[in-house]
């Protein structure tokens, strides 16, 4: 089921003060596909990710030009409700960041603030934990502290927490960089399940991971998007010399 583009980015520029961090980025993110963003550290891929749910708004001195169209609507238009936008675009962070409360309350946090009633809450929590492949491990200790979980479990809890607000898009910012190989593997499997229902954008500096999980890959270098293509094509037959240098390990 390929129903076109969920997000279209048009001529996006971003400055941190005088530092021109993103330069004329154009990119289409397809619905129900996994789009990976790769590139060396500091190339702007995480910055770009944060443009999609406007988390860059929280950083002082950021200036943004260009358009990010979510289903055709520019999210940088003046009257856009950022809170409602972030409800549609969930984010999972680099380091697992569960809140210092129970497992249940972590997952219920989003639905509660968005006004889901008490009766439905149990169902939402259970479904989200099941979708995040965590239910079997925690179903008998939902009232236990989230911070007592292992790193990999914490990260899946954060995914469950993001799923609980029923977003259309989920942004993953290097979700496995703090995890061991087994936890990483679990999350990669999970991504394949999630893409059936959600549009996924994942930033990773692990090229193998991008090659394994994604359908499309964009290569960033020094704030510019050098190349964007189907993952297979980009890795096996890159058009640009810089892309080839990077994926063959000649720099980065």
């Amino acid at each position: 089921m390929d129903d076109g583009n969920e997000i279209e980015i048009r001529d996006l520029n971003l400055w941190y003060g005088d530092n021109h961090a993103l330069k004329d980025v154009n990119l289409d993110i397809r619905k129900n596909r996994i789009t990976a963003l790769i590139g060396p550290s500091g190339c702007g891929k995480s910055t770009f990710l944060r443009c999609i749910n406007r988390m860059n708004d929280l950083i002082e001195g950021v200036k943004i030009k260009g358009e990010v169209l979510l289903n055709g609507e520019n999210i940088y238009k003046k009257d856009v409700d950022v809170v409602a936008l972030r409800k549609r675009i969930g984010q999972v962070f680099q380091k697992p960041n569960p809140f210092p409360m129970s497992i249940y309350d972590n997952v219920a946090y989003g639905p509660r603030i968005h006004g889901v009633g008490k009766k439905e809450l149990d169902g939402v929590v259970e479904k989200s934990l099941k979708d995040a492949a965590l239910w079997r491990e925690v179903s008998d200790r939902l009232e236990g502290a989230a911070l007592d979980l292992s790193g990999g479990q914490q990260q899946r809890l954060c995914i469950a927490r993001a799923l609980a607000i029923r977003p259309d898009v989920i942004l993953f910012d290097e979700p496995c960089s703090a995890l061991d190989p087994i936890s990483t593997h679990k999350i990669e499997d999970l991504l394949q399940e999630l893409k059936k229902k959600y549009t996924i954008v994942i930033v990773t500096h692990n090229m193998q991971q991008a090659a394994r999980v994604s359908d499309y890959t964009g290569f960033f270098l020094l704030g510019e998007m050098i190349e964007f293509n189907r993952t297979r094509v980009l890795f096996e037959n890159p058009e640009m010399e810089q892309t080839e240098d990077y994926i063959t390990g000649r720099f980065g």
Binding site: L58, V83, G90, F99
Partner: peptide, 8 residues
């Protein structure tokens, strides 16, 4: 950040 990213 986690809270704000969920639309709080």
């Amino acid at each position: 950040l986690g809270s704000l990213a969920m639309g709080a």
